[in-house]
């Protein structure tokens, strides 16, 4: 599995577009957005810090939704069939896909935080930095699976538009572009059902000293498990069909 993960990372890293657009874009977005909302305060944090975490969350999502759907191309090429002839078990294939998405999520998150530290001069303790990095990274797990789900569910041509159709509303309604507080009430309550909202919220809570929100953990775990179940189901369908 290690070689497979490593090779996939190598292949992706050869694509400059992928690196720039997917991994660096959230950082750029953060630098722009934090200028726009510069003077507000939200959720007990200054706007810079607040936006930094939102954008790191957005970056984590972007990567997951960029990497996962690529599995559609592999299904089209027959790569997964080839791998099914090897001892690599089905769960191993799924685990590799999730691992690749998770590994690539990390630099996107780190870039946003790094630009917060170096460009925006956001000051946090080392422990706080570590806490938000870990929180943001681990909480992006449901998205890694959701991205994969899209790639497994539809043809490669449809994966990209479907991915956008899921990920943009999720980012917006989850309050990653603007605080949920300024959204209308029903949208704000809808946000609490979304993993994107909790991804940012739980990470921000690491800075404000709020205890881990069990509702948030539950919502994210539910998304993760449902998506994973569907992915496994679709993998089996693929295996049985042809």
């Amino acid at each position: 599995m290690g070689t497979l993960i490593w090779t996939e990372l190598k292949v992706l890293s050869r694509s400059v577009e992928f690196l720039v657009v997917t991994i660096a874009f959230p950082m750029v977005f953060f630098l722009v957005m934090s200028e726009v909302f510069g003077s507000y305060r939200a959720g007990g944090l200054d706007m810079g810090t607040y936006m930094m975490i939102s954008m790191a969350a957005f970056g984590a999502m972007s990567v997951a939704f960029a990497v996962g759907p690529r599995v559609g191309l592999e299904r089209q090429a027959g790569w997964n069939r080839q791998l099914r002839l090897t001892p690599l078990p089905g769960w191993g294939y799924v685990a590799v896909k999730i691992a690749v998405a998770m590994i690539l999520t990390l630099p996107a998150v780190l870039l946003v935080f790094l630009s917060g530290l170096l460009v925006k001069g956001i000051e946090l303790t080392a422990g706080q930095w570590l806490a938000i990095v870990l929180s943001c990274w681990i909480s992006s797990l449901p998205f890694a699976v959701l991205g994969l789900l899209i790639g497994m569910a539809v043809k490669p041509e449809s994966a990209q538009p479907l991915g956008l159709a899921v990920y943009l509303p999720m980012a917006m309604l989850g309050g990653l572009w603007m605080p949920v507080d300024i959204l209308p009430g029903f949208m704000a309550s809808l946000a609490k059902a979304l993993p994107s909202y909790w991804l940012a919220e739980i990470t921000r809570d690491r800075l404000t000293g709020v205890a881990l929100d069990l509702l948030g953990v539950g919502v994210m775990a539910a998304w993760f498990l449902v998506a994973l179940t569907l992915v496994i189901g679709l993998y089996r369908r693929d295996a049985a069909r042809v």
Partner: peptide, 21 residues
């Protein structure tokens, strides 16, 4: 019907296959 990813080199393909065994 089994295919390989166009972005991988021949060597990488063989390497990945080898690593599974």
């Amino acid at each position: 019907s089994g295919g390989f990813l166009g972005e991988m080199t021949s060597r990488e393909i063989v390497q990945v296959m080898a690593a599974q065994y």
